[in-house]
Simulated assay, not measured.
Amino acid sequence: MAVYVSHMTRIMMFELLWNRMRVLRKTMESKLDFSPTMFDREVNHHILELEKYVNVYKMQLDNVKKIGHASKLLIFLSLPSYFVYVFTIVLEKLVSKGDQYDLDIMYIADCMINVILPLVPALFAELVTAEVDKIRIHLTRQLLFCSNNALRNRTYDALKFLKLRPFKYTIWRAFSLNISLPLGLISLCTTYTIVMVQFSHVYG
Rank of each mutant, 00 (worst) to 15 (best):
L143Q: 05
E92I: 10
V202N: 07
Y192C: 03
R20M: 10
L151I: 09
A130S: 12
L77N: 13
K31W: 04
C189I: 06
D99S: 07
L159R: 06
I171E: 10
K163C: 06
I194Y: 15
I137D: 15
V5L: 11
H69G: 14
R22V: 00
E92W: 14
L151R: 04
E126R: 06
N149H: 14
T27F: 01
V64N: 04
M12Q: 13
S81W: 08
I186G: 02
W172H: 09
H7A: 07
F175Q: 06
T190S: 04
E131T: 06
S200H: 08
V56P: 00
L119Y: 06
V90Y: 05
L144P: 01
S71C: 05
I135T: 00
V120E: 03
T190C: 00
V90Q: 01
S78V: 00
S71Y: 01
D99W: 05
K93G: 02
K163E: 04
L164S: 12
L24S: 12
E29D: 08
I116L: 11
K163G: 09
N153G: 05
L73I: 11
E131Q: 15
K66L: 12
A2P: 08
G68C: 01
M12F: 11
M13D: 00
S180E: 12
E126H: 08
Y169I: 02
I11W: 02
N63T: 09
N148Y: 05
V95I: 11
I75Y: 02
I67D: 01
L103P: 00
P121C: 12
A109E: 09
L162V: 08
V64L: 13
L74F: 14
N114W: 01
E131V: 06
I135S: 00
T155E: 05
V195N: 00
C111Q: 15
L162Y: 07
L17F: 10
L151Y: 04
F199S: 08
R141V: 01
I75L: 15
T88N: 09
L151M: 06
H46N: 14
T193G: 03
